[in-house]
Design a protein around this nucleic acid. Structure first.
Lengths: 333, 333
DNA sequence: GCAGACTTGGAAACCGCTTTCCGGGAGGTC
DNA sequence: GACCTCCCGGAAAGCGGTTTCCAAGTCTGC
């Protein structure tokens, strides 16, 4: 590989001068030498060794994002937002996928720390396990002590800057909207009990029903994905309205209904959460709670990067969800 | 940050010994010292500085993936496959998104080169522009001269290891299947003319029709995304069967039909390409050509990493598509 | 009991770049 | 014209690791 020294030699200047010309220094270099260096670099096809730069500068230009699953459009949207924001800051992005294994998440924080990434973003639901969360916090703290910045999209449980979707409030608003259509018997496809996102949405929904004086919903637990929704949909009992705690599950539920000859929304209404773009053309169109996922990802990155005072208290930004009523629910007679 | 030297000092050993214990060396270290070092590292919370390791070793453990758009499930699936494969090799993944800008793609190869990533994966269609392709090849060559490995998912146009989906053959098989259902008047929602993937699928489809002695299809160009399909669908003329060159476009076309009261498949049949998992529950279920995207991503990574002899000719692996007939097409009376 | 082969720990060179610190020359002031 | 700045180029000291090369033990086998 061509090194800076090669370039300097070829241009007949010192290493320092070559460095100043090629890799953005505050110091000026005279026009003649500058041109000579640039020409040499071009002729030789010089590419700076970023590992060396990172080492010398003590700071890298990559940021780390840890998500559960890139093929889940929820995380893809979050990651996309973060990556766009990163690009405008001139940063590269390193992505880790945990496939929902909390241990992996901890391991990734350690790895990102080793990489000395400028910031790490934890996207995705926290898990209701104090031990695991504690270890994650420890690992994050270690990273932050070393000057790293961290942010999280999800529940404010990590003591870092957080973009927190209003899962409870959004689900509650949805419940009120559905109750407003005349529904009284509800079921919730609630996802796994230990996933805080799922639990919050479920709890928010149930609490709103309670406030309205409506009966408790049937709660069916299961995986947080399409198949989880598909299977859970078979156990909704007499409900006339089903809330799946995310869109992907809702689509699974819709598929289950279709296969069993249950019409939506005529026989049963179905709603989801997230408003996944890829699913907007689904038939029937899904009633849901819209979250500005791309913006959230971008915002989280800005929070992590923007923090000037490392000792300041973490900021938590709440983002509201907007209920979007579509064909998959109907008004009760 | 705590450095290896801190650990060595705390353990009362030399830097060399500490390095050998902590960062996988071939050399043995006695049990006593080994334990002392491990203990010190643990107490201090040592995390190796990977930038330093990369510099010293001259090789990093990260691989780069360049995709067009992560929120497009096609690329998400490809990236997911590659990331899984990378994880099993103990590699990290750096992702760049170009948003379909070929200049960005070139820039990312240069950046990945600067990062000294172990391998770079170019996922996504080539563009029919010899100048741009030439510059990309140059940049790749520069990277490979420095010992980098590269692979590509898409057309074999870059002179690197390639996983090449059988776009022409898949589209041709689809055409024959649709013709077998009795269709004779076709339209192709063809995407942008300069995108090789789109062009190949279109050409394969048209060629098969020709061989069958059927009339030329109506070809409508437009963007390669959902909205492109949506808009193009309004210009299909008298066709009874529409082939959108990817699933996302097909879904857009389906939406357009729905809005205009055109029933699918009763009034018109629609088919796509890729068999995107997230779209499998679409109604009507989409006829398509299935590509094993996750495997393709993984395979490309293996190709790039597995290459022992850097001078060997690039290998091109063709992967077939499988026609999947579903509800969105019907048999003509 | 001793030569020779292994094993194991440490000193130091090196990976490629940034940046501080110096020194010399140009430009400005009185 | 002397003096003081200011500007710009270069030498060299790191950044935090890895690895080569030595030297000192430790084991063998005879």
């Amino acid at each position: 590989m061509v090194t800076l020294e090669d370039v300097a030699k070829q241009a007949g200047v010192s290493l320092a001068t070559a460095s100043r010309v090629l890799n953005g220094s505050t110091r000026q270099v005279g026009a003649t030498l500058r041109a000579r260096v640039e020409r040499a670099a071009d002729e030789l096809g010089y590419r700076a060794n970023i590992a060396a730069q990172t080492l010398a500068r003590g700071a890298s230009n990559v940021i780390g994002i840890v998500v559960h699953d890139l093929t889940d459009p929820y995380f893809a949207a979050l990651a996309d937002g973060a990556m766009r924001a990163a690009a405008t800051e001139g940063m590269l992005v390193m992505v880790g996928t945990t496939h929902r294994d909390p241990e992996q998440e901890i391991a990734y924080v350690a790895t990102m720390n080793a990489q000395r990434v400028r910031a790490v973003l934890l996207a995705g639901s926290r898990v209701d396990d104090p031990v695991v969360t504690g270890r994650l916090r420890e690992e994050l703290a270690r990273y932050q002590e070393g000057g790293g910045r961290a942010a999280c999209v999800g529940q404010d449980l990590l003591g870092v800057d957080t973009v927190a979707p209003a899962n409870r409030a959004g689900a509650a608003a949805l419940a009120r909207a559905l109750a407003g259509l005349g529904h009284t018997r509800f079921a919730v496809l609630a996802g796994p009990p230990h996933l805080v996102t799922a639990a919050d949405r479920c709890a928010g929904f149930a609490a709103a029903l309670r406030e309205l004086g409506l009966p408790e919903p049937v709660v069916v637990h299961g995986p947080f994905d399409r198949d989880g929704g598909y299977r859970a949909a078979t156990e909704i009992g007499e409900a006339t309205c089903v809330f799946a705690v995310n869109d992907v599950m809702a689509v699974g539920a819709l598929a289950a209904c279709r296969e069993r000859g249950i019409r939506v929304p005529e026989d049963v209404s179905v709603a989801g959460f997230d408003d996944i773009v890829t699913l907007r053309d689904h038939v029937p169109a899904l009633t849901t709670v819209r979250l500005p996922l791309t913006d959230m990802g971008a915002r989280a990155l800005e929070l992590a990067l923007g923090r000037e005072d490392a000792t300041a208290a973490p900021v938590v930004e709440h983002v509201a969800g907007e209920v979007v009523l579509r064909e998959s629910v109907r008004r009760m007679a």
